[in-house]
């Protein structure tokens, strides 16, 4: 069991990444424990998004992007030359800031898009997978009668849960969430937070958030990033969320979470 969990642990070693001549994050090292929720907080421009986008190598899809250092998923270096980023992304799913259901696909098609667009033809057992994924995303009851309407016709919160279901359908080990609630109202936010806690039983979750209350509410561990002198983001502190919020060891962390800046 322990071994199975370890395959979902992420070890970040001296990760430095940026675009062109700009360094977005510098020398970040931390271990994201498996089957926990790890929050990444910090002021705007501190490189939070860049950091998580390195974990599924989506960062490198941007023009001029570069990264150095090492990221291990279950002990294996995901930057190694023999790692196919397309394969990697099936293990490391992602949910974005704005819900982005594919507008030309129905609810059901959205859920299994990751499965269908990975191979030719129509794999078997898709219907079961649709229901299972929507149930895991706590969306099944609301959409079971409208599986064939456009994904874009759902409410914002439902769209975001659809995107979560879509990510879950590929059966990832890790789910990255880049400010998943910042475009949602409080009720929808609450539902997603509840959902995250349930999902963490099976997968590792990394959530970038602007909202410190959210980090305190949902996460087990918190990483605090801040930009250094040349605006490159650096890891200030990492630890169990309880401790970071009650007894931070760094003055900057304390200033940030007490709202003195940022």
């Amino acid at each position: 069991m322990r071994d199975a969990n370890e395959s979902r642990a992420i070890q970040i070693e001296e990760l430095t990444a940026g675009f062109g001549s700009f360094t977005a994050v510098r020398q970040v090292s931390l271990r994201i424990p498996p089957n926990k929720i790890t929050a990444i907080i910090g002021p705007s421009g501190s490189g939070k998004s860049t950091l998580v986008r390195c974990l599924n190598r989506l960062h490198e899809e941007v023009r001029g992007a570069w990264m150095q250092g090492r990221v291990r998923l279950g002990g294996h270096d995901i930057f190694a030359t023999d790692v196919d980023p397309v394969q990697l992304r099936r293990r490391v799913g992602m949910v974005f800031q704005r819900p982005n259901p594919f507008p030309t696909m129905s609810v059901a098609e959205n859920v299994v898009a990751g499965l269908r667009l990975n191979r030719w033809g129509r794999p078997a057992g898709l219907d079961d997978r649709i229901e299972e994924s929507l149930r895991r995303a706590a969306l099944w009851e609301q959409v079971k009668d409208k599986l064939h309407v456009s994904g874009a016709s759902l409410s914002g919160g439902q769209q975001q849960r659809l995107c979560i279901a879509r990510a879950l359908a590929v059966e990832p080990d890790v789910l990255l969430m880049d400010e998943p609630c910042s475009a949602l109202d409080p009720v929808a936010t609450f539902k997603i937070e509840e959902l995250m806690k349930e999902l963490a039983e099976d997968i590792t979750i990394v959530i970038v958030t602007h909202n410190m209350q959210q980090a305190a509410r949902v996460s087990d561990y918190t990483a605090f990033l801040m930009m250094g002198e040349d605006r490159a983001g650096e890891l200030v502190e990492f630890g169990p969320t309880d401790r970071i919020f009650t007894n931070p060891s760094d003055k900057r962390t304390e200033d940030y979470i007490t709202g003195r800046f940022g």
Binding site: L58, E61, Q87, R90, M94, F96, A113, G114, N118
Partner: peptide
């Protein structure tokens, strides 16, 4: 990015 992130 949504599609790429699914491993498409």
């Amino acid at each position: 990015e949504g599609a790429l992130a699914l491993g498409v």
